[in-house]
Structures are given as C-alpha cells and as structure tokens.
C-alpha cells in the first residue's frame, strides 16, 4: 500500500465568537490509510464532529480553520483549495454521514432526488442515469423495492431506513474517504448493529477508508482498525484498536474504558471519570486533563505533554515518569 490517503496535521479549528475564542479543535494530527477504518472516541464536546467538518471545510462561521493546519488528501492540500475545487471533493472524494438521520435528509425532496443530485453533480450524468444510480445505491444499502423508494419522502421512511438512505447518498459517488459521525447513535440497538454490519460490508466491498466517530467504545472496538482518543480538542492517545482497548496508556483512555459497559460488564455499576469536560474557552494550562486526572502532579499543571512514545503515542507525562502512577487511579469508581 502506498502512503495514507488522508493526512491531518496540526489541525486547529477555532470559533471566533463574540464572547471569546473557542478552540474546539486544537492541534489534531492523524493519518488515515487506504481502506483503513479510524475510530475517533471521546466525550461529548471534545471536538470530534468539528474535526470531521473541518476536513470537508464545512465549519460554519464564526468557526475557522487556523493557518498552518494541513489536511492532505492524496497529494492535494485541502485547506488551500478554492471553494469550487473543494466542492469537487465534497460528496465525491470525501463523503460524510451524520448522526441524526431524522433531520439530515431534506424533508421536502424525495430520497431518490437527493441521492441522484450528488451523482448528477459529480458525474455529470443526466436525470435518468442519476435516478438509476440512486436506485442501485438504495438496493446496495439494503432497501427493499428501491425503484419505488426513490419517490418516497424522508417522512415515509423509518429511522433505520433513512440512515441507509443517507449512506446510499454518501456512497453514491464512490468516495475514497467516508466520514461517519456517530452514524448509529440515534438508532435502536438492533438497527445499530444492522447499520454497522452494512458499513463494514460496504467498506470492504468498495475499498474506501473511513473515519468512524463514536463515543460508544464497544462499537469502535468492533469496527475500527485504529483508534484516536480525543479530549479537549486534542488527541490524547492513538494506536491500533487492539492496543488501545487492551493496554490503554493514557489515564483518560483508561477512564473511558472503565465507563464502557461492555468491557467492564462485571462491575456492579458504571464507573465515570470524575469532574466534567472543561469549557473550550479556557482549556486548563499544562495537560488539559489534569484537573480530572487521579495521577496529576505539579508538572502536569505546568507543562503541556507532547504525544510521547511511538507505537501507541499518549499525551501524558506518565510516559516519562511511570512511577508517578497512583493506586487511586486504578481503583476507579
């Protein structure tokens, strides 16, 4: 395999709001290999969605991708593309599916029309061909009777069917990269599993790379090849799925794992990470996790830890001073 299809380096997306600067994504870097699935996990508000939207340059003002951020798709630098060239990328080379299938489809246009629209735009095909492709895609995502579904409006479909339609729409132009931002969170558990299976299967069949965002670690463990753990707009830990789940290095990752029901099924009740996510307007100095970290010491309060270690980098001073690890942290809740 040649180099990664998507390289994100030092991505910083800030919101210049009237009452202060919101550093929603603050120096995120990662690579996405061809055909690879990268999981992004982290608590709500840590910047997962903004990261994905930044890749497509769809962050609404006052949000802005700061200078020196790089997002490279193959050999194209997306942050420097003109708006027109960027439109060529969206829905074509990179597609995205969203969390809310109920509101992500336009209620006043038919499913078929909304899928065909992207095909016609990027493939330059006519109405009939676009429609045909839409039907094909609906068949692909497992909708029965795709020809008839084309003329349905979103409200005529169930939630699961809508998410399938969304997936069909996203994949209609054979993208190289699919950004799936919590595609299953809003669905029933049984449907969740179906959609996940579908995504896995399609990814294999179409050979695309995928970024899969979720705060459900169980789901990520199932689907991702590699995982990055985000906190407060930064990557705290990164590594192969297996490694992250069996040998978490960062105290935050540990905390996350402990609070996930599937992996700690024997615990009588869910563990949580003490405290709450700080405000993105004022990230704590030093390590951003230190106010909630059971092991934190002076250095954590003052110096910002880099991503240390190589095969499973972790943004934690414990990498340098493992002896500082306290028992309190391990005891958990």
């Amino acid at each position: 395999m040649s180099g990664p299809i998507l390289q994100v380096e030092n991505l910083r997306t800030y919101f210049h709001t009237a009452d202060g600067l919101v550093r929603a994504v603050d120096g995120v870097s990662f690579n996405l290999g061809r055909g690879e699935t990268l999981g992004i996990v982290g608590e709500s508000g840590c910047g997962k969605s903004i990261t994905c939207l930044s890749i497509l340059r769809l962050v609404d003002p006052p949000g802005r991708i700061e200078p020196d951020s790089t997002i490279r798709l193959g050999d194209r630098e997306l942050t420097r593309l003109s708006e027109a060239a960027m439109r060529e990328v969206r829905g074509n080379a990179i597609s995205m599916i969203f969390q809310e299938p109920m509101t992500s489809l336009n209620p006043v246009w038919t499913i078929g029309g909304q899928i065909a629209e992207a095909v016609r735009l990027h493939r330059g095909v006519g109405r009939a061909e676009g429609r045909e492709r839409a039907a094909e895609m609906l068949g692909l995502v497992g909708l029965a009777n795709p020809q008839r579904r084309l003329d349905d409006y979103p409200h005529e479909l169930s939630g699961g069917m809508r998410q399938r339609a969304m997936i069909a729409m996203a994949l209609a132009c054979d993208p190289d990269v699919l950004l799936a931002d919590e595609p299953t969170t809003a669905l029933d558990v049984t449907i969740q599993a179906e959609i996940l299976d579908l995504l896995c299967e399609l990814q294999e069949r179409l050979g695309m790379a995928m970024i899969f965002v979720s705060h459900d670690l169980g789901v990520v463990a199932q689907i991702a090849d590699r995982v990055i753990v985000m906190y407060a707009g930064q990557v705290l830990e990164e590594g192969a799925t297996e490694g992250i789940f069996s040998r978490p290095r960062h105290p935050y990752t540990e905390g996350l794992l402990r609070s996930t029901p599937k992996l700690t099924a024997k615990l009588p009740r869910l563990a949580t990470i003490a405290g709450s996510v700080p405000s993105p307007k004022r990230w704590p100095a030093g390590c951003r996790f230190h106010p909630r970290c059971p092991h934190a010491w002076d250095r954590c309060r003052e110096d910002v830890p880099p991503l240390l270690a190589v095969d499973q980098p972790s943004r934690c001073w414990l990498e340098e001073e493992p002896q500082r690890r306290t028992r309190r942290g391990e005891a958990g809740g």
Binding site: R87, S104, N106, W109, L121
Partner: peptide, 29 residues
Amino acid sequence: RQDYIRTARAKGLPERTVILKHALKNALL
C-alpha cells in the same frame, strides 16, 4: 441551521443550489 443543509453542502452542491433548492423550499412553508 438545519442538518439537511449541512448534508446538502457535504454533497458538494454549490451554495446557490443549497440556498435556492434545499433551504428555500423549506423556508417557504
């Protein structure tokens, strides 16, 4: 502000189409 407008943009539609086709028809209700 709606999600489906973001969806439309994510498809790569030009802003004009997003506004006049996807947003307007809803806004007209």
